[in-house]
Design a protein around this nucleic acid. Structure first.
Lengths: 235, 235
DNA sequence: GGGGGTGGAATTGTATACAATGTACCTTTA
DNA sequence: TAAAGGTACATTGTATACAATTCCACCCCC
């Protein structure tokens, strides 16, 4: 991934680290770096044209979020989220989604609607051919817009972290499920969020979001049960 | 991953960083380092007998949690949590506390009871004289024990982070309120948590906890209103 | 032919020198 | 005298050399 031309003198160091962090996190969550990938600090340093030091800060933060794991003498590997944790996180996210609307109404910036419309358009196109990466990108896009209407900063921070801990699950779920239905439900959520937003009904936004999270959670439970059954058959 | 997970071995570098992290965080939250304090990396390095490098990792993590803030050329200062954020966090914590009991019952380790009894004893003693630091220590102790009965690791991690973002508020609240009542309510929560735990009623533990958080939240709202009134009078 | 030990290469963790930056104080000038 | 500018110092951010650790291939020995 090519980094933008670096006017280093104009960018504050913390902002640069933040950019690198988001870039690597995105690559992890879109499976450009699939689980198990070994990220070498030296390679990343060369890619981003910095030394290992700021890269280590970024990896350290990713490790706190559980997206990578560093072991001395081995390397920094992209993690696989435990299935059990995945369900727990989805339960948390569903709970928190209900809390989105519990604050005073927040009039969203006008470009939120534009962004949502663009996402909806892209999502429609997805129906034509299976494109998991595109699906992931739209998911991230929707998440980004939902974040923007959450007034409470702590809630925003927690939601963001939990989201990025779980996005990758779609790459496992969709193939075992139905591409058409996954796309359809994503389209529906975007539309419903947009409509709820248009009537300043934050509570509805939260509930729409909660319901889709809940759907995924049920799917995860089903998958877990199937795996348990498989294990039982083998035993 | 986070502080909630058990350290592997105290000899490994990651464990050492974890120890330093918890040490500094504790000192911040007990106001050994009051808000506004400038933490110099060199001083901390000498204090912990390491170089600046691991100290920087720790401070970086504390900065992510919002407990400190680093500015190049100035220093790393202990932050003051915004009042608005404080209320939001308490609302979040109250919401999450209700979710504690939503998982399958978890039989607590026997030493949880012992730890709670010790905390209760210490809390009784607090009634004799005002001791804000002791109050904070018991608060942290209670939190630590409650963490141990949360099965869901993601919920544990989030709860832990939010707790340490808000403990310091007691040092503001108690003086403006009533020392006796604060101690009494803390004692009550410890007792009620212990009782609920004794009958394997995790849901009750969560609700007891939620109720106290809710009490604090109301207090915070009241304080906020008073400050608004003051500002109004001045204007 | 197999098992275990040994050395080398690769990688993360640490220490340290240097660069960038902000603050305070002092100097100079209108 | 006050204000503007510059200079020195302290601090964080970065780069890099070195230490610690791990993995693996190779080889020796049985």
């Amino acid at each position: 991934m090519s980094t933008a031309s670096a006017p280093r003198s104009l960018t504050k160091p913390q902002a640069r680290i933040e950019r690198i962090f988001q870039s690597i996190r995105r690559q992890i969550c879109l499976l450009d770096f699939p689980p198990g990938t070994i990220l070498r600090e030296q390679d990343l340093a060369e890619q981003f044209k910095v030394s290992r030091t700021p890269i280590r800060h970024v990896l350290n933060r990713l490790a706190v979020d559980g997206l990578v794991e560093s072991r001395q003498g081995v390397g920094t590997t992209v993690t696989t989220i435990e299935f059990k944790d995945l369900i727990d996180i989805y339960y948390l996210r569903a709970t928190l989604a209900e809390a989105i609307g519990d604050s005073e109404p927040l009039t969203p910036a006008p470009d939120v609607f534009k962004a949502l419309d663009e996402l909806a358009a892209k999502c429609e196109e997805l129906g034509n051919a299976v494109d998991l990466r595109g699906f992931g990108e739209i998911n991230i896009g929707l998440h980004t817009q939902i974040l923007r209407i959450i007034r409470s900063r702590p809630l925003r921070d927690v939601s963001d972290r939990l989201f990025y801990q779980t996005v990758r699950v779609w790459f496992q779920i969709v193939p075992r499920f139905s591409w058409e239905r996954a796309v359809l439900e994503l389209c529906q959520e975007i539309q419903e969020v947009r409509q709820a937003l248009a009537r300043d009904d934050l509570k509805a936004v939260g509930l729409v979001h909660r319901n889709r999270l809940s759907t995924v959670m049920i799917l995860l439970h089903r998958t877990l049960d199937e795996e348990s059954a498989m294990a039982y058959q083998l035993a």
